[in-house]
């Protein structure tokens, strides 16, 4: 069991990080913490993908002339994650700007307070 855990350490850590981000996204009332949780989930999935592409003793895929293909790591997860990281930061910026708009209207970062105020405002108008 311990050997298996040691063997699959990257996968286990990535699902741990995924669960932490998931719980944060569900349970933390603060909007900024929710965005951090989403970022944690992002990076955990990237870690999982990159760990799938790794090969024991492999080199980074800078291909030299006439070399054996089995001595490099898998380039496909690398390419996917590379674009994913940059898209993750743009979605984070979008969420942060939405948070800022919410704060400008309701003067709170707490999602429950925001919902409460929105409900009150709808009833009063």
């Amino acid at each position: 069991m311990l050997e298996l855990i040691l063997e699959q350490r990257y996968y286990l850590v990535s699902i741990l990080l995924f669960s932490i981000g998931f719980v944060t996204l569900f349970l933390h009332p603060n909007l900024i913490k929710k965005i951090i949780g989403l970022n944690l989930m992002d990076t955990s999935i990237f870690l999982f993908l990159a760990a799938m592409g790794y090969m024991e003793g492999g080199q980074a895929p800078m291909i030299e002339e006439g070399s054996n293909w089995a001595m490099y790591i898998n380039p496909i997860p690398g390419g996917l994650v590379l674009t994913g990281i940059v898209v993750a930061v743009s979605t984070t910026a979008l969420f942060l700007s939405l948070t800022h708009r919410l704060y400008r209207k309701y003067h709170s970062l707490n999602l429950d307070v925001i919902l409460m105020l929105a409900k009150k405002g709808r009833e009063d108008t």
């Binding site: 090969m55 024991e56 003793g57 380039p75």
Partner: peptide
């Protein structure tokens, strides 16, 4: 996810299904 991870091929193994002909083509 834990159950799935325990069933996954070993970390760093060359005979994993992710190593298919696409990768071979790209690298070769």
């Amino acid at each position: 996810l834990c159950l799935v991870v325990m069933e996954l091929p070993e970390f760093g193994a060359l005979d994993a299904p992710a190593w298919n002909e696409v990768v071979q083509r790209y690298l070769q």
